[in-house]
Amino acid sequence: MKYLYVAAAEEVERGALAAVTARLAAEFGGPVRDMELGSVDFAFDAERRQYGSIPLLDMLLRRCPPDAAKLLAVTERDLFIPVLTFVFGQAQLGGRVGVVSFARLRQEFYGLAANREIFLERACKEALHETGHLFGLVHCPERKCAMSLATTVRQIDLKDDAFCAACGARLRRNPEGTQV
């Protein structure tokens, strides 16, 4: 039996982690396994003062347990790829490992008062989104679908905390998620 793993970096708030794990278990039919990732400081880029999502994914591939069908890592660090100012997360399309960053999902990041409800909602949507990529889903043109591309939190907030009917059907047709 292969499992969906959620791997938390050491700095991740455990309450939020539990909420995300529960949402993924409900969506993909649990159980979802937990894993401790420790520090992700090795991915720190001194010039950008952010964390590289590519070295992070490389590390995840090396540490992916044999019984993991898919592994989604969660971090509080702000992620980037060289060509972009930031990414909310990144996943190998139809692959084994992905990562979600909570950094920009918090109101505090934008100088606003903390709002736990908004943050948790965004965290669940983004976790669904990256996991969807792991199962081979590409961006969905339906703005309300969790698989639509969001490049701002505003766009995340416009999404539902769920896949649209078409993406849901695609997931069911291809539960291994090896193909697009």
């Binding site: 790829i81 060289p82 590409v138 961006h139």
Partner: peptide
Amino acid sequence: DEEVMCESLAAWLREDG
């Protein structure tokens, strides 16, 4: 010429289909 640069942008675009 930088692999990380190349692969990360490619991965990002692949997510877009």
